[in-house]
C-alpha cells in the first residue's frame, strides 16, 4: 500500500478544513511503528514506515495538504462569494484524485472505474454509469476483474472523462494505493476502485479482497486505525486487513465454557456481542474503524444462501425450521 507522492496532491481547496479529531492523534493513539501522521489533515496513523518493516509501499505521507495547489481557484468565483456559502469549487478547482473534505473524494476519471452503487454525489464532464452486469457482456475485461457474483449487483462501471465526487453516508473517505499487494476490506465500506485492481470475494463473509496494483477508496466510520498482528478485533469494528492470513474466529474462553455446559445450540447465539472476535496472526496490517455501526449488507443473504448448497436435503429442512422458529421468536 502506498500513498501517492506529494506531487499528486494539488492541495486541499479548503485549507484548515476538518472536524476536531483530524489533527494529530492523542498521545498513544498511533500504533507503534506507524509514525506521526501528516500535520493537520491526515488520518492518525499514516506515517513513514518504521525501520525494519520492509513493506514496499507505506510511503511518506502527503505533506499535510499544505499550500493550496495550482488549481486553488480564486475565492468568490462567479455565482459565489455571498456570505456563508463555502468557497466555490469548480471542475478546475476540484482536486484530482484527492479528498475534497474528509467525507468526499474527487476521482479524476479518464477511462473506467468501478464504483459502488449510490456512491456518486455529483460529477462534471462526460461520464456514463452502467451496471457491471450490463457492462461485462460487452467488455470481457470487466468480468475478469470483477470476480464476485454476490456483489456484482451492487456495483457500476463509471466510464468517460470528468471529475466524479463520491461519498458514503457521510463517513470518512480515504484512498489507498495497492502496490502489487492484496487487501481485504468490508464490502460495505469499499466505495470505488480502479480497474487495474482485481476484486475477489473473501472467504470471510461480507468481505472482498482487492489484488494487484491500483487505487481504491474506502469509507470508515471515524478515522482508520492501523494495527499489527497478533491482534484480536471486534467483527463490527474490523474494516479490513492487508498482507496477513485471513482471521480465525476466537471465542472468549469463559463464554465457551458456559456454552459447552449449556449445550451446543447456544453456539449460534451471540449473547453480549463481545464474546466473538477475529483473531489475526502472521505478518501484515489490520485496519479498524473507530465505530461499530453495522449496516445491513444485502449481499450477506445471497452469500449465506449460496452456501446452503453444502447442506443435504434433511439438513436444509432443519435449518429452515430453525430459521422459522427464530423469526417467530423475534416477533414476540
Amino acid at each position: 500500500m502506498t500513498y501517492p507522492p506529494p506531487g499528486q496532491h494539488p492541495g486541499n481547496p479548503q485549507p484548515g478544513y476538518g472536524p476536531p479529531g483530524y489533527g494529530p492523534p492523542p498521545p498513544g493513539y498511533g500504533q507503534p511503528g506507524y509514525g506521526p501522521p501528516p500535520p493537520g489533515y491526515g488520518q492518525p496513523g499514516y506515517g513513514p514506515p518504521p525501520p525494519g518493516y520492509g513493506q514496499p509501499g507505506y510511503g511518506p505521507p502527503p505533506p499535510g495538504y499544505g499550500p493550496p495547489g495550482p488549481h486553488g481557484g480564486p475565492p468568490g468565483a462567479p455565482g459565489g462569494g455571498a456570505g456563508g456559502i463555502p468557497r466555490t469549487l469548480s471542475a478546475q478547482s476540484l482536486p484530482s484524485d484527492d479528498n475534497v473534505n474528509p467525507y468526499v473524494f474527487c476521482i479524476e476519471l479518464s477511462g473506467d472505474w468501478f464504483m459502488s452503487k449510490g456512491a456518486m454525489l455529483a460529477y462534471y464532464g462526460d461520464v456514463r454509469f452502467e451496471a457491471v452486469t450490463q457492462y461485462s457482456s460487452a467488455q470481457a475485461w470487466v468480468a475478469a476483474r470483477f470476480s464476485s457474483p454476490v456483489y456484482v449487483h451492487d456495483w457500476v462501471v463509471a466510464s468517460g472523462r470528468g471529475k466524479v465526487l463520491i461519498g458514503d453516508r457521510g463517513f470518512d473517505l480515504n484512498s489507498y494505493d495497492l502496490d502489487d499487494g492484496n487487501l481485504t476490506i468490508k464490502a460495505n465500506n469499499l466505495c470505488a476502485f480502479s480497474p487495474q485492481l482485481e476484486l475477489k470475494q473473501s472467504i470471510v463473509p461480507g468481505f472482498v479482497t482487492l489484488i494487484g496494483t491500483g487505487k481504491f477508496i474506502a469509507s470508515s466510520n471515524g478515522p482508520v486505525i492501523f494495527v499489527e498482528p497478533p491482534f484480536r478485533a471486534d467483527p463490527d469494528a474490523l474494516l479490513g486487513w492487508a498482507d496477513c492470513p485471513s482471521p480465525s474466529v476466537h471465542h472468549d474462553a469463559e463464554w465457551m465454557t458456559r456454552s459447552m455446559l449449556g449445550g451446543l445450540s447456544a453456539a449460534f447465539g451471540r449473547v453480549s456481542g463481545e464474546e466473538r472476535q477475529y483473531d489475526f496472526t502472521g505478518q501484515g496490517t489490520v485496519l479498524l474503524q473507530s465505530s461499530e455501526v453495522a449496516r445491513e449488507d444485502p449481499a450477506v443473504l445471497r452469500l449465506v444462501e449460496s452456501q446452503t448448497d453444502l447442506l443435504s436435503t434433511s439438513q436444509a429442512g432443519q435449518l429452515g425450521q430453525r430459521l422459522i422458529a427464530r423469526a417467530q421468536q423475534q416477533q414476540h
Binding site: 478544513y17 468565483a77 462567479p78 455565482g79 459565489g80 456559502i85 463555502p86 468557497r87 466555490t88 469549487l89 469548480s90 471542475a91 475534497v100 473534505n101 467525507y103 468526499v104 449510490g118 456518486m120 454525489l121 455529483a122 460529477y123 462534471y124 461520464v127 465526487l165 461519498g167 453516508r169 457521510g170
Partner: peptide, 19 residues
C-alpha cells in the same frame, strides 16, 4: 446537511450532474 456542504460552480460548458 449530512456532512459539510460543498458549493459547486455551474457555468456554460461546465454542467454539473448531482445525485
Amino acid at each position: 446537511s449530512e456532512g459539510p456542504v460543498m458549493a459547486l460552480e455551474v457555468a456554460p460548458g461546465q454542467d454539473l450532474v448531482v445525485d
